[in-house]
Write a protein that binds this DNA or RNA. Structure first.
Lengths: 205, 205
DNA sequence: TTGACATGTCACCGGCAGGTGATTTAAATT
DNA sequence: AATTTAAATCACCTGCCGGTGACATGTCAA
């Protein structure tokens, strides 16, 4: 074997990723990582310390959450000219698309409801910053009842999370095919409508 | 030991329930059930056959999903006189309360996104009947764009599920305290508003 | 009373998990 | 080339899991 710590560490981290993407946390463990990386497990302990630290290290190398740019369609400035409800709708729909294409993130989201591990903790913080930034960028100073907006947005993002997570294991939710583009377009239409009619000045609609 | 198969079977099933409610599927297994029930595990195999059959047996004895009456506030007839958006809002809020007080159901919902086991399968069917009945009872014949209603309701119930499930492990979601009555009241207010403005004849709001 | 059968007990298996100590061996330093 | 350092390997431990075979004993019918 080539003796190269950096390379070995990379192999291990990469194994973590592919393992999580494939089987999730249920089949995850030191032994599994070692096998997948074709590396002796003792090296994992030596280089990373153990599971929690390994996950922390892995967390620092990944992008588990959309960036502001990603959900703002690359152009935050343009969005700010639009009415708030339109902005929020766009952000939510882009958010849905963004998490749907992150298998590891979906896995973490699913596992969060079972057990709070290191990845969940990291994700939690990232997520918090993310939403703080979003509301600072787009909501601050707008004429809107804060509490209501927060509740509506929470409900919608929660729904998006749930459906995205669930779609990995089950194909439908109620009448909606959550594995097809068509299904998600219907959901986006609903999001659009909800934002349009429920967000903005209190007399909106 | 008292020799009484029926009683032993009950002890085992009861152990399944309390084990699921306490630790969920992650810590669940034949050995754990046997320990909890203070019964030799071989009896589980003898009387039930194995894990899947044990879960099936357990499933048949429980009420993991709200009944129609429970979400209709005990009086379906009265609801039908109201405008549709009001009916749906009431149903959704009662649904939220109903699942929040079913720890095992929340556990199954959480686990569904990880792995599809016997309980998940049973729950799936129950849930399907439930929503079919609801829409037959309250929506059939109303003047409403079916597809849109379905998408909005899916999004809302998904959000409710997610928040209820998540509240077991994490106390907040965004700005909302999902462990407090106050937090859920804010969510109910949002649900109410969304229904009011987004459900009904297309020109509603 | 004596079986027969069902209930419950005990001991064991193989496999895999997390975790560690001692040893080999390649590469950098002198 | 000799020595040191650390990367990698090997062998092993404990503990728990699902699963099974052999055995003991209470209950009920003949």
């Amino acid at each position: 074997m080539a003796r190269n710590r950096k390379a070995t560490e990379q192999k291990i981290l990469k194994a973590v990723g592919s393992l999580l993407a494939r089987g999730g946390f249920r089949t995850f463990g030191i032994n599994a990582v070692a096998r997948q990386a074709r590396v002796d497990k003792v090296l994992i302990y030596r280089y990373f310390g153990g599971m929690p630290d390994l996950l922390r290290a892995y967390a620092e190398a990944g992008t588990y959450w959309p960036t502001i740019d990603e959900v703002a369609g690359g152009d935050p400035e343009r969005l700010r000219g639009n009415p708030l409800h339109e902005t929020v709708a766009t952000l939510l729909c882009n958010f849905a698309r963004a998490i749907r294409r992150r298998p590891v993130t979906l896995e973490i989201l699913a596992w969060e409801s079972i057990e709070r591990n290191e990845l969940a903790k990291v994700l939690e913080k990232v997520r918090e910053d993310f939403s703080k930034n979003l509301s600072r960028l787009f909501v601050a100073g707008q004429d809107v009842t804060e509490g209501e907006l927060a509740a509506v947005v929470s409900l919608l993002t929660a729904g998006i999370n749930y459906l995205a997570v669930r779609s990995r294991k089950v194909g439908r939710y109620g009448d909606v095919n959550i594995r097809s583009e068509e299904g998600w377009q219907r959901l986006e239409a609903a999001i659009l409508m909800i934002c349009e009619r429920c967000i903005g000045s209190r007399e909106a609609a």
